[in-house]
Computed example of a mutant assay.
Amino acid sequence: MAMYFTTDTHFGHPLVSALRGFITVPAIKEEYDRIAAEQGRAEATLYVKRAVAVDPSLSMRAIADTDAHDRAVIASINATIEAGADEGVDLWILGDIGYRTTMEHIRHCLRALHADRLHLVIGNHDINFHHRELDSEWRHVFATIQDSARVEIDGVTYNLSHFPYRDDLGPARSGTDGDRASGTGSGSASAGTPARDGSDNAYDTGFAADALPRDGHRLLFGHTHQHTKPGRNHDSLHVGLDSWDLKPVSEAEVTAWFASL
């Protein structure tokens, strides 16, 4: 079975839908697209936040096209995994499946995915986060449900978690995010997470107890909604939709990314 990895699908979630550019207000949508094309999606995301903050008549729910977002995510995932589906596909979703919507809607979206088996690594927006007695809500949807997991790709062990490594949570440190993003550290110019590239609590220590400690293995993670792929250290790769153009990540892409460091 081929394995693919993704996270933070956020089906039905107005905030994430709007920040990903699925917007019903034409003027805001046009400006979002312009900024995204010229400056990148991180800046476009900040524009949407500012636009809603300064206009009391607006809200993320009012401007978000959640149906278009969900259709786009499903179509993108299916198109990607079907290209490698000859041997069957295991799709790992590393948390935050949906939010601000009904369980019925989330289950409907999950059943529309064409993977042979779905696996859930639980995120902080999932109903069974800290409430594993609610795992039954996902019956007949997920083959496995875990707080964290391990897989092997080309003989290398990878940890799977919704969160970055516990050691990386907290404010950016000198020689990590800032230097690597600007190309002045040990990594390349693309090997860092710009300080503004992520959600407001992207590396907040509030979830430290739920994050894995660094243990010598590589990590595939989500949660941060960053638009760049690398984590704060070279052993971590963000596999969220926001940094992979709404596509899941294949085993070959994981191996190639780490080999390029």
Score class of each variant (00 low, 15 high):
residue 3 M to W: 01
residue 7 T to C: 11
residue 8 D to I: 07
residue 15 L to M: 10
residue 15 L to S: 12
residue 15 L to P: 00
residue 23 I to V: 09
residue 24 T to C: 13
residue 26 P to W: 08
residue 30 E to W: 06
residue 32 Y to R: 09
residue 35 I to N: 11
residue 39 Q to P: 14
residue 39 Q to K: 15
residue 41 R to V: 05
residue 44 A to E: 09
residue 48 V to T: 04
residue 60 M to F: 12
residue 60 M to I: 00
residue 62 A to M: 14
residue 64 A to Q: 08
residue 66 T to S: 13
residue 71 R to I: 05
residue 73 V to W: 03
residue 74 I to W: 00
residue 75 A to P: 13
residue 76 S to I: 04
residue 79 A to F: 04
residue 80 T to S: 14
residue 81 I to A: 01
residue 85 A to E: 10
residue 86 D to Q: 13
residue 86 D to S: 13
residue 88 G to V: 01
residue 90 D to M: 06
residue 97 I to S: 00
residue 99 Y to T: 10
residue 101 T to C: 12
residue 102 T to S: 13
residue 102 T to M: 11
residue 104 E to H: 07
residue 105 H to C: 05
residue 108 H to R: 15
residue 116 D to R: 01
residue 118 L to T: 05
residue 118 L to F: 06
residue 123 G to L: 01
residue 123 G to R: 04
residue 130 H to A: 15
residue 131 H to M: 06
residue 132 R to C: 04
residue 138 W to E: 12
residue 148 S to T: 09
residue 153 I to L: 14
residue 154 D to I: 06
residue 154 D to M: 05
residue 158 Y to R: 06
residue 169 L to H: 06
residue 171 P to A: 01
residue 172 A to D: 10
residue 175 G to W: 10
residue 177 D to E: 15
residue 183 G to A: 13
residue 183 G to E: 13
residue 186 S to I: 15
residue 186 S to Q: 12
residue 189 A to D: 09
residue 191 A to Q: 14
residue 191 A to L: 10
residue 192 G to N: 02
residue 192 G to A: 04
residue 198 G to V: 10
residue 200 D to G: 11
residue 206 G to S: 12
residue 209 A to R: 15
residue 215 D to V: 14
residue 216 G to D: 04
residue 217 H to L: 05
residue 223 H to F: 07
residue 229 K to N: 07
residue 230 P to A: 02
residue 237 L to Q: 03
residue 237 L to H: 09
residue 237 L to V: 03
residue 238 H to D: 13
residue 239 V to M: 08
residue 242 D to H: 05
residue 249 V to I: 04
residue 250 S to N: 08
residue 251 E to W: 00
residue 254 V to E: 00
residue 259 A to E: 11
